[in-house]
Design a protein around this nucleic acid. Sequence first.
DNA 1: GAATTCATGTAACTTGTTACATGATTTA
DNA 2: TAAATCATGTAACAAGTTACATGAATTC
Lengths: 184, 184
Amino acid sequence: MSLRMSLLGLINLTPMSGYDLKKFFDDSFRFFWAAETSQIYRELQALERRGDIDSRSEESRKGPRRKVYSITDQGRSALREWLNGPPGDVDEDFRNEVLVRTFLSAEAEAGVAGNLIRSRLDAYRRELEHLDSVEARLPEFVALAGGDASLPYWKIALSRGKLVAQANIEWAEESLRVLEGLKK
Amino acid sequence: MSLRMSLLGLINLTPMSGYDLKKFFDDSFRFFWAAETSQIYRELQALERRGDIDSRSEESRKGPRRKVYSITDQGRSALREWLNGPPGDVDEDFRNEVLVRTFLSAEAEAGVAGNLIRSRLDAYRRELEHLDSVEARLPEFVALAGGDASLPYWKIALSRGKLVAQANIEWAEESLRVLEGLKK
DNA sequence: GAATTCATGTAACTTGTTACATGATTTA
DNA sequence: TAAATCATGTAACAAGTTACATGAATTC
């Protein structure tokens, strides 16, 4: 549902083609959600079939014709209904491959868990650096979607990324100390 | 892959039936990964087809016969290979419905984002309390799987849950302050 | 006698991933 | 002329969810 509603929400901001949407996901929306081209086109077809969006074919300056989607009245109310409706069981992060691997590593060769967590620690640190660099590019993102009014929402998203990255770093460092202690 | 390997890893600790595994997932393994009955039985069939596990039918004290799975030599080496192999692109938490909803709420009625985050804050706090209560039951979990040697691994998993929950609480509180500021 | 627990599954569907197909236009 | 960008998709598969089917034994 999230992908469907993300697409609807973005088309609601401004009419877009599948290609536009893919770029948008890759450029910035991946803070919230990620999607592959194949999935985007599939969902766009589903949304059009339901009547939540409609399309017109447009000349492009380059390459084949563009299929530009606009939201319909029905789509607007579907979006509103979803946003106002109960988030339901928004279960966050309850599946984590790193934890599975760590736990099962108890049975593997010595050092497996440590190596895994060390490489994760690197990744978390790079992620945090990346988010710091994104902070400087926020105006760019705001221009891409939502306008000035959206700035606080971009900041809210960014801050979650940073807080979780910091928590992960703390976790990895702490866990490495625990594993180190086991050797003795 | 994670579910497949979780099942293989648990059967490696001790032979189990699909029913046992489901209970195990519900009771404790959900710290790492969750799974429905239908998915568990499907994966068990796949694992048996590949020869990573084999089964024998057993009388049960109650209800129909149990199908108890044991790991094979091939399964043991598949597990070891997976654990020693590269974790690949273990992309953690890069899809978050709460962020999607919050961001799109900029276009919805006033208060939608605030309500959402307030209800999330409650959920994060309950999660943290729950994890605290779990800490007391750790010996139980250890008995269920892995034995004494697994205690540090359970603690590592638990501490990640707590750190992330704390980060989420911090995020929600901070975000509510930001949204509050917007009203003025 | 009703509800719960034990136990195994199937079917249909939704969501996400990977790989491939096609072809035009522009830029280096 | 080769590579990058523009643009739209299909097919096959993998993983997860929801709903349903069946039936024995035990506990309330």
